[in-house]
Design a protein around this nucleic acid. Structure first.
Length: 347
DNA sequence: AACACGGGGGT
DNA sequence: ACCCCAGTGTT
């Protein structure tokens, strides 16, 4: 059965929906899964080149599971939210070990996998198997919030609950994959955050926000709070070969699992650390311009201090979460935004 | 400069 | 059930 709402959406999809995205070709659970994880917090145009490189290097779940984590992070470099890449890798290993490389077809099973919540599980099963599950990503939230004039921000549990109820209510039992894709496409191309193209929208008739004449009022905005500012010192320790010391960051927290400059709260901490690891006297050679990084919940000011060593010591450090790096060093790990920004600045 | 984005993890 | 965490691109 196809309810009226879904029928209009599907008719629109047949004429205007996207059918040539890379992950729509051979939409296996693996290919759809990778695309859905990349598309979390990231737009289609950004994802496409990453997706191509990823599929070339990791054509199937076994290849991904067997790869070193550094290789996975390297291909994720620049996409942000690196826990997505770590979860992707971990989930590939679980699918290999617990499901013999075949993704579960049950939504509850799928939701136990790291990085896959209700909406992503639903999207994978809908797009790859045509199972009738509702999704609720940012695009669909916007369409439904406007159509039903759902006030409030979807970060509030009761608003989110209402949106899920609407999503479930409109679900067709036929053509579910097309419907899922259509809802995402409508949110991305028609029912956009600003300047929605209501005149082209197949749902205009029943849309409460349109009737009120204020589609831009939905969905409700997240309450804003001001960002704390944090400062830290980044050590640019250069050896006599002109290489810089990089540290493998811990698996969680900012830039988790990526390689970055050693970071210190203050100069005392840095001096102590240098004295402990390097017998020779270390003198700050330069204070470089501050790098500023804005995260969603704080702003980080990194003051780079350059320290030059008159030798190439501490080869012994290599391999244990440390490495000496030059712009042309070939290595497979991902670099933090700070390191990439630094090398961009000197180019 | 403000804003949006899905899920994990802790309490 | 509630909070906090995390990076980049768009507007």
């Amino acid at each position: 059965m196809i309810p009226e709402f879904a029928n209009k959406v599907l008719i629109w999809f047949d004429q205007h929906g996207r059918k040539d995205l890379p992950w729509q070709q051979h939409p296996t659970p693996y290919r759809v899964w990778v695309s859905e994880i990349m598309l979390q917090q990231t737009q289609v145009a950004t994802v496409i080149p990453y997706y191509g490189r990823f599929m070339q290097r990791f054509p199937d779940v076994l290849t991904l599971a067997d790869a070193p984590q550094d290789d996975v992070l390297k291909l994720w470099e620049g996409l942000g939210y690196y826990s997505r890449a770590r979860n992707l890798h971990k989930t590939a290993q679980r699918v290999r070990d617990e499901y013999a490389c075949v993704f579960p077809t049950d939504r509850a099973d799928m939701e136990t996998l790291s990085g896959i919540g209700r909406s992503t599980a639903a999207a994978i099963l809908s797009l790859s198997h045509g199972q009738a599950h509702a999704i609720l990503d940012g695009n669909v939230k916007r369409v439904l919030a406007r159509y039903h004039a759902v006030a409030g921000w979807s970060g509030e549990p009761r608003t989110l609950k209402q949106l899920w109820e609407h999503a479930e209510h409109h679900l067709p039992t036929q053509r579910n994959a097309d419907y899922t894709q259509a809802m995402m496409d409508m949110g991305a191309t028609l029912c956009t955050r600003s300047k929605p193209l209501c005149l082209l929208c197949p749902l205009q008739d029943g849309c409460k926000a349109f009737q009120q004449g204020k589609p831009q009022d939905y969905p409700g905005k997240r309450p804003k709070k001001d960002l704390p500012e944090k400062t830290a010192l980044a050590l640019l320790l250069r050896n006599s070969d002109g290489e810089l010391l990089l540290q493998h960051r811990p698996p969680t927290g900012i830039w988790g699992g990526l390689w970055s400059f050693p970071e210190f709260a203050d100069e005392t901490a840095m001096a102590d650390w240098l004295a402990q690891h390097f017998a020779q006297t270390c003198i700050v050679a330069a204070r470089l311009p501050t790098l500023t990084h804005t995260f969603s919940h704080y702003r980080l000011h990194l003051q780079p201090l350059q320290v030059d060593l008159d030798a190439h010591p501490a080869r012994i450090m290599e391999g244990n979460g440390w490495l000496w790096y030059k712009a042309d060093t070939h290595f497979t790990g991902g670099l933090s935004a700070a390191v990439r920004q630094f090398f961009q600045n000197i180019e």
